[in-house]
């Protein structure tokens, strides 16, 4: 064990012949939040999709470099295993519209056979919904379709669905970008407590510097497909060593 839940080494990604990431490296210690920040279009989402091998689905994508989950290269694992251990929450809430709230959360545990009985499955679902701070709002209507929920609730349902597969790493792709402020706060809170109490390691992608500093222990500043600066959040925020980072914090990038 290296003590790092996730290590990205010299990651280079090309999409349809266009270079998106140009040698990205960083490490995430276990049970911490790493915020990956940077202006839009700088390859943050692509990086997350490379980590859990969702880019495998895109025939136009070429990925080089290494990614290690708890010291093991993702290239040595089955993609299904990688995605379960490092699961993802997307920018837009995307619960399965044809499944009930309960089934949305239960679908992952069912696929992976995580529950031995109905009770165990119920427990996992409840745990995931509680962890996503949604349980109190939906416990009496678990059979409703997700279309009855608000956008922010749907995003927390997506979070609960991801948690229910018991991931070691959670990859969040601007999870609050399309959510109202109240729900955004709830999601941020949920993430802090997940890290503290469940020991999950989080990679949080955002284009908002304030949010990046607020939620994270470590900051990675991505610009033009490269890591411009990284380090403990407080240090980077107070003393950016690169003028680009400074500009980004001032909102000029």
């Amino acid at each position: 064990m290296t003590g790092y839940a996730l290590e990205v080494r010299d990651l280079r990604v090309t999409l349809s012949g266009k270079r998106i990431l140009n040698g990205v490296s960083f490490r995430c210690p276990e049970a911490t939040v790493t915020a990956v920040m940077g202006p839009s279009g700088t390859g943050k989402s692509t990086m997350l999709r490379a980590i859990n091998r969702l880019l495998d689905l895109n025939p136009e994508a070429m990925v080089e470099g290494d990614i290690l989950i708890h010291g093991r290269s993702v290239w040595e694992m089955e993609p299904y295993e990688v995605r379960r251990r490092a699961t993802m929450v997307f920018q837009d809430p995307n619960p399965f519209p044809h499944m009930s709230i309960y089934d949305n959360v239960a679908v992952g545990p069912r696929l992976h056979g995580l529950a031995r009985s109905k009770q165990e499955l119920d427990e996992i679902v409840r745990w995931a919904l509680e962890r996503a701070m949604l349980w109190d709002e939906v416990k009496d209507r678990l059979r409703d379709p997700p279309s009855k929920l608000s956008g922010g609730q749907r995003q927390r349902l997506s979070l609960a669905r991801a948690l229910a597969v018991k991931p070691e790493i959670l990859l969040l792709d601007e999870p609050t970008a399309n959510v109202d402020p109240v729900n955004a706060v709830k999601i941020e809170e949920a993430i802090r407590s997940l890290v503290r109490e469940e020991g999950i390691t989080v990679v949080f992608v955002t284009h908002m510097p304030s949010q990046a500093v607020r939620v994270s222990d470590y900051l990675v500043f991505l610009y033009g497909g490269r890591v411009v600066e990284q380090g403990p959040s407080r240090e980077v925020a107070l003393n950016p060593s690169n003028p680009l980072t400074e500009k980004f914090f001032r909102g000029e990038l």
Binding site: E78, Y80, E81, L111, H112, G113, L114, R116
Partner: peptide, 10 residues
């Protein structure tokens, strides 16, 4: 029941 990755791959 935990489902093995091998069974699922098959």
């Amino acid at each position: 029941m935990p489902r093995s990755l091998r069974a699922r791959k098959l």
